[in-house]
């Protein structure tokens, strides 16, 4: 299993390697989540299955399945 954003605990960060899904990749890329960027999980969503992340100077809310498609180095 490749390392994905979903494996990160709050407070830890990783470097984006690529995306597991072209359609979601399109969305992430257009928001500035690019390969090579550092992405940090700040906290989980209050009701679970969601991530509050920081990347490229902006804050983004992601669902679990979106986090799973972000591959990390």
């Amino acid at each position: 299993m490749p390392l994905t954003l979903n494996d990160l605990k709050p407070g830890s960060a990783g470097k984006i390697k690529g995306f597991a899904d072209d359609l979601l990749a399109n969305r992430m890329l257009s928001m500035g989540l690019l390969p090579g960027k550092t992405i940090e999980v700040i906290r989980y969503a209050p009701l679970g299955k969601g991530f509050y992340v920081k990347c490229n100077g902006i804050y983004i809310a992601l669902r679990k399945q979106e986090a799973t498609c972000i591959l990390l180095n």
């Binding site: 359609l23 979601l24 969305r27 992430m28 928001m31 969601g50 509050y52 902006i58 804050y59 983004i60 809310a61 992601l62 669902r63 979106e66």
Partner: peptide, 11 residues
């Protein structure tokens, strides 16, 4: 359309 959250949380 696909359902996304991928939502920017503005400053």
């Amino acid at each position: 359309e696909p359902s996304f959250l991928a939502l920017e949380l503005p400053t």
